[in-house]
Structures are given as C-alpha cells and as structure tokens.
Simulated assay, not measured.
Amino acid sequence: MARQPRNWILGAPYHIMMRGNRKSIIFHESKDFTKYLDILQLTYEQFPYILHSYCLMNNHLHLLLEPINHSPTVLFRKINTSYALYYNKKYDVTGHLYQDRFQAKLVDSTSYLLGVSKYIHLNPVEAKLVKEPEHYPWSSYSSYYHQKKNPLITTDKILSFFPDASPDHYNEFILRKRTYKEQEQADTFLKP
C-alpha cells in the first residue's frame, strides 16, 4: 500500500524527529554527528530552509525546521539518503537506517514553538547525558546560550518572543521547570 502524501505549509515551522531503526544507534562517534551537520549544510545550500533548533542524540534527532520553497519531504529525501549512504558504507552494513519515515508535527502557535525549542534543547539533560544543556555539543543550544555563531541556526524568531530579544531571557525560560502543557505536548509527540 502506497504511503499517503503529506500536506505541507511552506513557511511554517515543523518539529521533525527521526529515530534509528529499532531504536538503534545512528551516531556512534563525533565524525558521525559532524557528517550529519555537514549534510544539513549542503542540503541548505541546494534547498534553503530555516533551522531554529536541533539536537542530535545517539539513536534519534530533533529539528525545529521551517521549509521555505521545498517541502520537508524533498529536504529529507536528500538528507536521509546522504546520511544513510555514508553510514552504511562506513559501518559496512545494509538495510534501513531509520525507523519509518520522519515524523513531522506542524508547530502552529507561539507557545508550541517555544515549547518545542525547549524540549529539543533539554533532550540531552532529560536523557541524563549532561547536567546542563550548554554542555551537550550536538545541539543548537550554544547558539542561544553563548550566542555562538552557527551557519545552520537562525535564533531571531525564537528570541523575538523575549524582552529585548535577549538570549538571557531565553536561557531562563529553558531552565525553568516545564509547564504541564509543555510536558503534555512533548509526551504527545513521542507517543507512537
């Protein structure tokens, strides 16, 4: 049975998540994380998009992405194929790298946008990989926390919702305990 085509709204942000097949590891070492980020950059050069936040974990990843002229289907056909070819060649394996096709949730409100960005940046903390989000090297949090320039990340939209577009206010928001609604949205997204 053929998959149903998805309807996309260009210019709207989406929370994208992909998981390794059978929850297996898709990033084993630093070079793998770096390769994925390089592929995101190369894809951007061919099919521009806006990336607000990301977090690459060992067996899954999260992106808060806004397509401009091309649907996420076009973007992830390129991204997923490129990374799977790299991975299969490097680790001498065959078969599917990802579990199903990528998940994508339309982010249709300011509270959801901020909640998704918070969820993405706190992912390594929740997984107990680090105590503070700024210590995790494979997320976009340093672009907000340290105001470190990252050619992949655009912080303007997220920061525009805080007084004086201040990264300090965003950081306070990230470290504040999640509201019930934020937790409910995170739980809903992760349910199969």
Results as ranks from 00 to 15, higher is better:
Tyr14Gly: 11
Ser109Phe: 07
Asn7Ile: 13
Pro137Leu: 06
Met57Asn: 07
Met17Phe: 12
Ser53Gly: 13
His70Glu: 14
Leu42Glu: 15
His96Ser: 11
His70Ser: 11
Lys148His: 04
Arg101Asn: 12
Pro67Arg: 13
Asn88Phe: 05
Leu42Phe: 10
Arg176His: 09
Arg6Asn: 08
Tyr54Cys: 09
Phe173Lys: 10
Thr188Pro: 00
Ser30Met: 10
Pro5Met: 06
Lys90Ile: 05
Gln4Gly: 02
Tyr141His: 13
Glu134Asn: 13
Tyr180Phe: 06
Lys177Val: 04
Pro5Lys: 13
Phe189Cys: 03
His146Pro: 00
Lys90Met: 05
Asn7Met: 10
Lys105Ile: 14
Leu85Gln: 15
Ser142Gly: 04
Ile16Met: 08
Phe162Thr: 00
Ile50Ala: 13
Ile158Gln: 10
Lys191Trp: 06
Asn69Lys: 08
Glu45Trp: 08
Leu175Lys: 14
Ser139Gln: 03
Phe76Ile: 04
Leu122Ser: 10
Lys131Cys: 05
Asn80Trp: 01
Leu75Ile: 06
Met17Pro: 09
Ser117Met: 01
Ile9Lys: 12
Ile120Cys: 06
His15Tyr: 04
Val107Asp: 06
Leu65Tyr: 04
His169Glu: 15
Thr188Cys: 10
Leu114Lys: 14
His169Pro: 00
Glu172Arg: 13
Pro137Ile: 01
Arg101Gln: 11
His169Asp: 08
Thr81Ser: 12
Lys177Phe: 00
Met1Thr: 13
Arg22Cys: 09
Lys78Thr: 07
Leu175Pro: 02
Arg19Ala: 00
Arg3Ala: 05
Glu132Gly: 00
Val125Trp: 10
Val93Leu: 12
Ile26Asn: 05
Ala165Lys: 14
Ala2Ser: 12
Gln4Arg: 14
Leu64Asn: 05
Ala127Gly: 02
Met1Arg: 12
Arg101Phe: 06
Glu66Phe: 02
Pro5Cys: 04
Phe27Met: 04
Gly11Tyr: 08
Arg101Val: 05
Asn80Tyr: 01
Lys89Leu: 08
Lys118Tyr: 02
Lys177Glu: 13
Phe161Ser: 06
Thr34Phe: 14
Ile174Ser: 03
Thr155Val: 03
Lys148Leu: 10
Asp32Gln: 09
Ile120Thr: 03
Lys23Trp: 02
Arg101Asp: 05
Tyr14Ser: 12
Arg22His: 15
Ile39Asn: 14
